[in-house]
């Protein structure tokens, strides 16, 4: 049963990665200059006595050595308990579920659009190297690859929300309304600008890599042979090119999930969009260890799954990678 063995090796490796991520996050939080108790007390810091602080520390387990704390957290994790977020005053699992629902639309849409758009543009540019279309597309890709996400987001806000008034300035819905009351159209309206910004930014690498692979293919013996059989440029691009060029595109699209996640955090910050990104920033600034650890784990899981998907798809498309037999 090679499939089962492969899967179990993969799962074991993933668990190891997650453990390392958890350890690293915990270590970073320990080294963080923000004291969790100070952050929790906030402005009431002056009113809390030393005994009260000790009481909180004891209740949170801060009086124990770090390794004990980490071990305790791992034990809780094994029984499915992620802990309590003091920033949101909710169980961590609930915070993540709620917040991720907000981010999912943003992340998923931007991911899908950037993969499709990046691939299409890359193929178009690669078919005719040095044509004016190629120049326009690669120029666009180079410029957006060098553009910081938050800057473009702010420019977008200034232009479309403030000057033109086409899109809302912030949030996932009109302020003051409950989540369930917001209609789909309104939600999409609020999503439009963040998604567009994120898509625009994550398209470039996929475009450039697809274009490079496409150029290589159009000069390869495979293309020459197709031309010798009377195929047109577009036919070669469609039958041979798209097949070959989707390999790097898939790798990038899946591997860039992590980067996209980073982009989501910045974008959510600029657009004040209530998603996992904002929760992460809050958790870090206010030293909410359980929430931050859970978010780090969740993100690492997502990225690992992305990489595993890329590996699997690769095998599906390129027969040379399949095991013989």
């Amino acid at each position: 049963m090679p499939v089962i063995r492969l899967l179990s090796v993969r799962l074991l490796r993933m668990a190891l990665v997650l453990l390392c991520v958890a350890g690293l996050t915990f270590g970073l939080m320990l080294a963080s200059p923000i004291d969790p108790i100070d952050a929790y007390l906030g402005p009431q810091i002056a009113q809390a006595s030393a005994e009260q602080r000790e009481l909180i520390a004891a209740r949170w387990g801060f009086d124990q050595p770090p390794l004990m704390q980490f071990g305790h957290w791992l034990g809780q994790l094994a029984s499915g308990e992620l802990g309590w977020s003091h920033v949101y005053n909710q169980p961590v699992s609930e915070v993540i579920t709620q917040r991720f629902q907000g981010s999912l639309a943003l992340l998923g849409l931007a991911w899908l659009l950037s993969a499709l758009l990046g691939f299409a543009l890359g193929v178009l540019a690669g078919v005719r190297e040095q044509s004016s279309l190629d120049r326009v597309i690669s120029g666009y890709a180079y410029i957006t690859a060098a553009t910081p996400a938050f800057w473009l987001a702010m420019l977008g806000l200034l232009l479309f929300s403030v000057t033109l008034g086409w899109t809302p300035v912030c949030c996932a819905g009109p302020s003051g309304s409950l989540r369930d009351e917001v209609s789909l159209v309104t939600r999409l309206h609020h999503l439009a600008l963040p998604v567009a910004t994120l898509t625009l930014l994550s398209t470039a690498p996929i475009t450039l890599h697809t274009r490079a692979r496409m150029r290589e293919l159009m000069a390869s013996p495979v293309a020459t042979q197709a031309f010798a059989q009377g195929a047109s440029r577009w036919e070669v691009a469609w039958r041979h090119g798209a097949r070959h060029a989707c390999l790097p595109a898939i790798t990038l699209a899946c591997a860039s999930l992590g980067e996209l996640f980073g982009g989501v955090m910045l974008i959510e910050q600029v657009f004040a969009y209530p998603g996992l990104g904002r929760a992460t920033v809050e958790a870090a600034l206010r030293s909410d260890v359980p929430l931050l650890m859970a978010i780090a784990l969740f993100t690492a899981l997502l990225v690992s799954l992305g990489n595993a998907t890329a590996d699997g798809l690769y095998r599906l498309i390129d027969p040379r990678l399949r095991r013989q037999g």
Partner: peptide
């Protein structure tokens, strides 16, 4: 028709 020199003229995929 051309029978090419290189076997890499076949699309590996």
């Amino acid at each position: 028709a051309l029978i090419p020199q290189s076997l890499s003229a076949l699309d590996p995929l």
